[in-house]
Protein backbone atom coordinates (compact mmCIF):
# COMPACT_ATOMS: atom_id res chain seq x y z
CA UNK A 1 0.00 0.00 0.00
CA UNK A 2 2.73 2.29 1.00
CA UNK A 3 4.60 1.31 -2.10
CA UNK A 4 1.58 1.97 -4.26
CA UNK A 5 1.19 5.44 -2.80
CA UNK A 6 4.79 6.04 -3.55
CA UNK A 7 4.27 5.10 -7.18
CA UNK A 8 1.22 7.32 -7.36
CA UNK A 9 3.19 10.15 -5.88
CA UNK A 10 5.97 9.49 -8.32
CA UNK A 11 3.54 9.56 -11.24
CA UNK A 12 2.00 12.77 -9.98
CA UNK A 13 5.36 14.39 -9.64
CA UNK A 14 6.27 13.45 -13.23
CA UNK A 15 3.08 15.07 -14.41
CA UNK A 16 4.02 18.07 -12.35
CA UNK A 17 7.40 18.11 -14.00
CA UNK A 18 5.99 17.63 -17.46
CA UNK A 19 3.77 20.70 -17.26
CA UNK A 20 6.51 23.34 -16.91
CA UNK A 21 8.47 21.53 -19.63
CA UNK A 22 5.92 22.94 -22.06
CA UNK A 23 7.19 26.40 -21.25
CA UNK A 24 9.15 27.61 -24.23
CA UNK A 25 12.91 27.65 -23.70
CA UNK A 26 14.49 31.05 -24.08
CA UNK A 27 18.28 31.05 -24.01
CA UNK A 28 20.35 34.09 -23.07
CA UNK A 29 22.95 34.61 -25.77
CA UNK A 30 26.04 36.81 -26.03
CA UNK A 31 27.19 38.16 -29.37
CA UNK A 32 30.03 35.61 -29.44
CA UNK A 33 27.57 32.77 -28.83
CA UNK A 34 25.32 34.13 -31.58
CA UNK A 35 28.25 34.13 -34.03
CA UNK A 36 28.89 30.51 -33.17
CA UNK A 37 25.21 29.60 -33.53
CA UNK A 38 25.02 31.06 -37.05
CA UNK A 39 28.34 29.70 -38.28
CA UNK A 40 27.09 26.48 -39.90
CA UNK A 41 27.88 26.75 -43.62
CA UNK A 42 25.07 24.37 -44.63
CA UNK A 43 22.35 26.57 -43.21
CA UNK A 44 20.82 29.94 -44.00
CA UNK A 45 20.11 31.89 -40.81
CA UNK A 46 17.49 34.59 -40.46
CA UNK A 47 17.89 36.42 -37.17
CA UNK A 48 15.06 38.71 -36.11
CA UNK A 49 15.78 41.28 -33.39
CA UNK A 50 12.59 42.11 -31.51
CA UNK A 51 11.18 42.87 -28.07
CA UNK A 52 7.96 42.06 -26.26
CA UNK A 53 7.25 45.80 -25.81
CA UNK A 54 7.81 46.64 -29.49
CA UNK A 55 4.41 46.58 -31.24
CA UNK A 56 5.65 46.45 -34.86
CA UNK A 57 8.01 43.61 -33.86
CA UNK A 58 5.25 41.57 -32.28
CA UNK A 59 3.10 42.23 -35.34
CA UNK A 60 5.69 40.81 -37.75
CA UNK A 61 6.70 37.76 -35.67
CA UNK A 62 4.07 35.52 -37.37
CA UNK A 63 5.77 36.18 -40.71
CA UNK A 64 9.03 34.75 -39.38
CA UNK A 65 7.18 31.81 -37.85
CA UNK A 66 5.42 31.16 -41.14
CA UNK A 67 8.74 31.15 -42.99
CA UNK A 68 10.23 28.64 -40.54
CA UNK A 69 7.11 26.47 -40.80
CA UNK A 70 6.92 26.65 -44.61
CA UNK A 71 10.55 25.66 -45.11
CA UNK A 72 10.99 23.27 -42.23
CA UNK A 73 12.39 20.67 -44.67
CA UNK A 74 15.04 23.10 -45.93
CA UNK A 75 18.30 24.18 -44.29
CA UNK A 76 16.98 27.51 -43.00
CA UNK A 77 16.82 28.49 -39.35
CA UNK A 78 14.88 31.39 -37.98
CA UNK A 79 16.26 32.76 -34.70
CA UNK A 80 14.09 35.17 -32.74
CA UNK A 81 16.50 37.23 -30.67
CA UNK A 82 14.75 39.33 -28.05
CA UNK A 83 16.38 42.63 -27.11
CA UNK A 84 14.27 42.85 -23.95
CA UNK A 85 16.09 43.61 -20.72
CA UNK A 86 17.97 40.59 -19.37
CA UNK A 87 15.90 40.79 -16.20
CA UNK A 88 12.80 40.08 -18.31
CA UNK A 89 13.74 36.47 -19.13
CA UNK A 90 10.56 35.14 -17.54
CA UNK A 91 8.36 37.61 -19.42
CA UNK A 92 9.97 36.57 -22.70
CA UNK A 93 9.46 32.88 -21.80
CA UNK A 94 5.80 33.51 -21.01
CA UNK A 95 5.38 35.43 -24.25
CA UNK A 96 7.03 32.67 -26.30
CA UNK A 97 4.91 30.00 -24.60
CA UNK A 98 1.63 31.86 -25.04
CA UNK A 99 2.36 32.46 -28.71
CA UNK A 100 3.57 28.86 -29.09
CA UNK A 101 6.61 30.07 -31.03
CA UNK A 102 8.23 27.28 -33.05
CA UNK A 103 11.44 29.14 -33.95
CA UNK A 104 14.41 29.22 -31.59
CA UNK A 105 14.05 32.06 -29.11
CA UNK A 106 16.98 33.87 -27.50
CA UNK A 107 17.45 36.80 -25.17
CA UNK A 108 20.37 39.14 -25.86
CA UNK A 109 23.03 39.04 -23.15
CA UNK A 110 24.82 42.35 -23.70
CA UNK A 111 27.36 43.68 -21.19
CA UNK A 112 27.52 46.75 -23.47
CA UNK A 113 24.49 47.63 -25.59
CA UNK A 114 26.58 49.81 -27.88
CA UNK A 115 29.09 47.05 -28.55
CA UNK A 116 26.40 44.42 -29.15
CA UNK A 117 24.51 46.60 -31.64
CA UNK A 118 27.71 47.63 -33.42
CA UNK A 119 28.81 44.00 -33.66
CA UNK A 120 25.51 43.00 -35.26
CA UNK A 121 25.81 45.90 -37.72
CA UNK A 122 27.70 49.19 -37.61
CA UNK A 123 24.82 51.00 -39.32
CA UNK A 124 22.10 49.73 -37.01
CA UNK A 125 20.74 52.57 -34.88
CA UNK A 126 19.49 50.05 -32.34
CA UNK A 127 15.86 50.65 -33.31
CA UNK A 128 13.60 47.60 -33.50
CA UNK A 129 12.69 45.53 -35.39
CA UNK A 130 15.87 44.54 -37.20
CA UNK A 131 16.58 41.47 -39.30
CA UNK A 132 19.81 39.82 -40.39
CA UNK A 133 20.27 37.10 -43.00
CA UNK A 134 23.43 35.02 -43.01
CA UNK A 135 24.55 32.52 -45.61
CA UNK A 136 28.12 31.66 -44.72
CA UNK A 137 28.64 29.43 -47.75
CA UNK A 138 27.91 32.32 -50.12
CA UNK A 139 29.55 34.89 -47.89
CA UNK A 140 26.23 36.71 -47.43
CA UNK A 141 25.50 38.73 -44.34
CA UNK A 142 22.94 41.51 -44.61
CA UNK A 143 21.15 43.55 -41.97
CA UNK A 144 17.87 45.44 -42.36
CA UNK A 145 16.45 48.01 -39.94
CA UNK A 146 12.84 47.60 -41.08
CA UNK A 147 9.69 45.53 -40.80
CA UNK A 148 9.08 42.59 -43.14
CA UNK A 149 5.85 41.32 -44.67
CA UNK A 150 5.78 37.57 -45.35
CA UNK A 151 6.31 38.15 -49.08
CA UNK A 152 9.30 40.40 -48.46
CA UNK A 153 10.76 37.88 -46.06
CA UNK A 154 10.21 35.01 -48.46
CA UNK A 155 11.89 37.03 -51.21
CA UNK A 156 14.80 37.76 -48.87
CA UNK A 157 15.22 34.04 -48.25
CA UNK A 158 14.81 33.02 -51.89
CA UNK A 159 17.37 35.55 -53.15
CA UNK A 160 19.97 34.70 -50.50
CA UNK A 161 19.63 30.93 -50.07
Amino acid sequence: MKYRNFILLFLLSTIGLAAPAQTRTVTPITYQQLEKRISNKDTVYIVNFWATWCAPCVAELPNFEKLQQTYKGQPVKVLLLSMDFKSKLNEVKTFASKRKLISEVYLADKPSEQVFIDQVDKNWSGALPGTMIVNAQKGIRKFYEKEFTYDELNKLYQTNK
Binding site: F85, K86, S87, P111, S112, E113, Q114, V115
Partner: peptide
Protein backbone atom coordinates in the same frame (compact mmCIF):
# COMPACT_ATOMS: atom_id res chain seq x y z
CA UNK B 1 23.87 59.86 -27.78
CA UNK B 2 23.33 57.56 -24.83
CA UNK B 3 23.97 58.26 -21.14
CA UNK B 4 26.01 55.05 -20.84
CA UNK B 5 26.10 51.66 -22.56
CA UNK B 6 24.14 49.72 -19.96
CA UNK B 7 20.44 50.62 -19.68
CA UNK B 8 19.81 47.95 -17.05
CA UNK B 9 22.71 49.22 -14.94
CA UNK B 10 23.90 45.65 -14.45
CA UNK B 11 27.54 46.03 -15.43
CA UNK B 12 29.49 48.04 -12.81
CA UNK B 13 32.24 48.74 -15.36
CA UNK B 14 29.94 50.27 -17.95
CA UNK B 15 31.10 53.28 -19.94
Amino acid sequence: GAIDDDTENSNPNHT
